[in-house]
């Protein structure tokens, strides 16, 4: 990655794809109160995505607005990390994804809030507070499922094992970016270590570290997600909504 455009686009795509996945839970959550909580988090991610994509479009200077970037790019042009595009799975997989994402986004947005780019700093300052809530919510459920029943423990451990390899991509070094993701790793490891321990879960080991999202090489899942998200917009070129 290089330059603030790619960086901003990557963060915007992370937030957008995360929002799209979280919104899939609407009407399906384990409890009605949780339906509302997941929608809140999806709305936060969507709001951050809109700010980031709008700014990315301005940085690019080619006249693309948030909708042009969201609806008129193919999967090879998306720059989100693979973690967010993974299917929701069961509630444990979704909570593992949410928890890891928030444990990355919180230090990221906090660092961004102090960066030299004023627009990114403002977005970081706003999104940081939301990420703190997402982290709280994710951690709260990781603990409950990890230290709940035998079945929930089994499901939560299996979810952590499944999602964990995808976290490494989030911290690929990019010294030229407004915030170098590699610098966020210690904060992430601290948070994850203590929550998993409290949840009686084991932190996975192993060398597998899938990556490619930041350069547009995704899993097979993303193009399906985009096909659904973009179908109506693309069927009516140039229409206003």
């Amino acid at each position: 990655m290089n330059g603030p455009f790619d960086f901003t686009l990557g963060l915007g795509d992370d937030a957008l794809v995360a929002a799209q996945r979280l919104a899939e839970w609407t009407t399906r959550a384990p409890e009605m109160e949780e339906d509302i909580a997941l929608a809140n988090i999806a709305l936060d991610q969507l709001g951050a995505a809109r700010l980031l994509l709008t700014y990315a479009g301005e940085l690019e200077g080619a006249g693309r607005d948030e909708d042009a970037l969201a609806y008129l790019r193919d999967d090879r042009e998306f720059r989100n990390a693979l973690l967010v595009e993974l299917p929701n799975g069961d509630f444990a997989v979704t909570m593992a994804k949410l928890f890891f994402l928030a444990a990355y986004q919180l230090p990221l947005y906090s660092a961004l809030a102090g960066c030299a780019d004023e627009r990114l700093a403002a977005i970081g300052a706003k999104a940081r507070k939301e990420s703190a809530y997402h982290l709280d919510h994710g951690a709260l459920w990781v603990k409950r499922l990890g230290d709940g029943t035998e079945e929930s423990h089994r499901r939560m451990q299996s979810a952590v094992d499944e999602v964990w390899p995808y976290t490494h991509e989030l911290f690929a070094a990019d010294p030229a970016a407004p915030v170098d993701p590699a610098t966020l790793r210690p904060a992430f490891d601290d948070t994850v270590g203590s929550v998993l321990a409290e949840a009686t879960l084991t932190k996975p080991e192993g060398p597998w570290a899938p990556a490619g999202g930041r350069t547009g090489v995704h899993t097979e899942h993303l193009s399906y997600l985009l096909a659904e998200m973009q179908v109506l917009h693309r069927a009516h070129p140039g229409a206003r909504w």
Binding site: L16, A23, T26, I36, L53
Partner: peptide
């Protein structure tokens, strides 16, 4: 909720998601 994933603009998506969320709240 059937149209949240396919809402034709990000603004419409946000409004619809907030609306469907409100309905859950009203139910409660």
């Amino acid at each position: 909720g059937n149209w949240i994933s396919r809402a034709p603009s990000l603004k419409r998506k946000a409004i619809l998601l907030a609306k469907v969320q409100d309905e859950a709240g009203h139910g409660l």
